[in-house]
Design a protein around this nucleic acid. Structure first.
Lengths: 177, 177
DNA sequence: CAGAAATTTCTGTTGCAAGAGAAAGTTTTG
DNA sequence: CAAAACTTTCTCTTGCAACAGAAATTTCTG
């Protein structure tokens, strides 16, 4: 099959998304596939993805599995076609929320665990007081961020948007409240 | 020189920080060096860093330059020692702020530029309406986050802390205000 | 249930970032 | 200004993630 031709803007979007992903520790092909599905806005079969992006079918297969682990895509079926098709949300806020929640769960929370563990261990007394305090501070920051993240993630996108729009005005609310 | 011995907790902290860095697109050695300087809480010379972490002197040199580009460390001098010493803030909030600001500037803002560019280009009309809308939505989300980030980064750590403590309670303030 | 279609797993390759060590360069000091 | 101390730049190596293609497996269809 000859490579499926993307519109120039879609191509640019997808390529840039791939670069972005790399810089944040996400495999380039994985990012690109997700960008493609997002822009397509409709379920695509794996071979069409491979064809469009010009990567090996097996690479697509593994990347799709990865995206499923991230809960960013799901398998759907199209009438009269036995191939699996893959679909992602077209709601960018929802996608954002999922990515943040996943990274928090995978990397942030475990780190909090390690820090707690460090502070609980008998070995902690071998460290000098100031070092101990810095580990404690780090844990404190991460716990605050974690708790705040959980609360924010629970809000509706529209509410979250309002919170952000409020921005720094929140300062005055804190003083008054 | 024989490798300088770290306390077990420091070692664990530094190793874990290195792993964390990798997952977020930061070079492992770079993360480790920063963690070491943070825990040490005092300026260290490059050779002592190389020695403590067991990596090549040249690697340390390049990593230190990288950390300076990130504005996370600076060169200081110690009386009676002609070697450069490297120092980082021991204020974890300040460090957090710098990292967020840098990543925003390096990766987030340029992406906003690309998206604007996409939407301004003549080629955008080749895309179908729904795709165009999704690019527009993506830009909207990123612009909101960017503006909000700028405002938050301007706040004092202590204020920022209060904002986070407020958490979801902010919802009611929005309704009332 | 045989053959076809689709998918996944396995195996080997490749490209590149990360890093070591040598060489070159710079700064300091007597 | 020569030698020593220190730092950076350069070059080559290495390890590993990313990937391709083949082989194996599963699922579907008449």
């Amino acid at each position: 099959m000859s490579p499926m031709k993307l519109n120039p803007v879609s191509e640019r979007f997808i390529l840039h998304w791939g670069e972005m992903g790399s810089k944040w520790g996400v495999n380039r092909t994985v990012s690109q596939i997700h960008a493609l599905l997002y822009l397509a806005g409709k379920p695509l079969p794996a071979d069409e993805i491979a064809d469009t992006l010009g990567v090996a079918r097996s690479n697509v297969s593994n990347s799709l599995k990865e995206l499923q682990n991230w809960k960013l895509i799901k398998i759907v079926h199209v009438m009269g076609d036995r191939r699996d098709h893959f679909d992602t949300s077209t709601d960018v806020w929802e996608l954002f929320r999922v990515v943040v929640a996943q990274r928090k769960e995978r990397e942030f929370d475990p780190t909090i665990g390690v820090l707690r563990d460090c502070l609980d261990s008998g070995d902690i007394n071998k460290e000098d007081k100031a070092t101990r305090q810095r580990i404690q501070d780090t844990l404190g920051l991460m716990e605050s961020l974690s708790a705040w993240g959980d609360e924010m993630l629970r809000l509706e996108p529209s509410t979250l948007m309002k919170v952000m729009k409020l921005g720094a005005k929140i300062q005055s609310l804190i003083r008054s409240g």
